[in-house]
């Protein structure tokens, strides 16, 4: 564990998140320890309300823990100021949400450019990167389309391109296939597969067992705690070809 902890890009030590007080106190996340090594694709599964989305928010600095520590690339992030956290998210973390969360008034390309421009890239560089990424996710011909003009799968691919634009250390995906049909889920998984092959660190919170099956490691959660942490062997990790069943 220590070896993993030392090489981990993302680490949580005894991290907790409580909501409410007294009788109505709820422990959404209860003193969890987690280490995600560079290049690993980790899936977190569990029933609704078990705290998996809260864990993802804590790891990504979207929420502050009520206890414990969160480290990203050797930096403790749970004590950072809002401003520093914003910069960290911008540079080191890419988010992919179930609801896509694209800006509807911006085109696909402009949505992808958004984090790059916030990070201070020149307009030209941001445009170039957005073009490259949209090509990579197969949406170069949809660059000028607004999100409402895209299918769910296409919107999620735009969101993935946006998450990648600043070459983050880790991508955190919250139910990325939750709003997608089978074909669109396959498109997204194909992209994750490519990212995994390229050594991108990924943490995916999902309900979908088939999505989880593509990961290197699977953690099961219940009532704010980990109940199982399984390293999937190569034979157990499903490759994209095995996912053809998704199209049934």
């Amino acid at each position: 564990m220590n070896d993993i902890g030392n090489t981990a890009v993302l680490r949580a030590c005894g991290v907790s998140k409580e909501h409410g007080q007294g009788q109505s106190l709820v422990r959404a996340v209860d003193e969890l320890d987690l280490a995600v090594p560079t290049g690993e694709m980790l899936a977190v599964m569990g029933p609704s309300g078990c705290g998996k989305s809260t864990l993802l928010h804590l790891l990504g600095g979207l929420e502050r823990p009520t206890g414990g520590e969160v480290w990203l690339a050797g930096q403790r992030i749970d004590t950072m100021s809002e401003r520093a956290l914003a910069r960290l998210r911008r540079r080191s973390i890419g988010f992919v949400f179930q609801a896509f969360h694209l800006m509807e008034e911006l085109s696909a390309a402009e949505n992808v450019e958004l984090p790059a421009l916030l990070a201070g890239c020149s307009a030209r560089t941001a445009k170039r990167r957005a073009h490259e990424l949209l090509e990579r996710v197969g949406l170069a011909d949809r660059a000028r389309h607004l999100p409402p003009e895209l299918s769910g799968g296409q919107r999620q691919r735009v969101a993935i391109a946006r998450a990648l634009v600043n070459e983050p250390l880790v991508i955190l995906a919250d139910e990325p296939s939750g709003n997608l049909d089978t074909a669109a889920t396959l498109e997204v998984l194909r992209l994750f597969e490519e990212l995994r092959s390229a050594g991108q660190t990924l943490l995916i919170v999902t309900h979908d067992e088939r999505v989880a099956a593509t990961a290197d490691r699977l953690i099961s959660m219940r009532d704010g705690t980990f109940v199982d942490d399984t390293r999937l062997s190569d034979s157990a990790t499903m490759r994209l070809g095995d996912l053809i069943g998704l199209e049934d």
Binding site: L62, R83, R87, H101, L118, A119, R162
Partner: peptide, 13 residues
């Protein structure tokens, strides 16, 4: 605002 924060916008931005 939530969206902008998620992609790294600072409170000032």
């Amino acid at each position: 605002v939530g969206l902008l924060k998620a992609v790294g916008a600072t409170p000032g931005q």
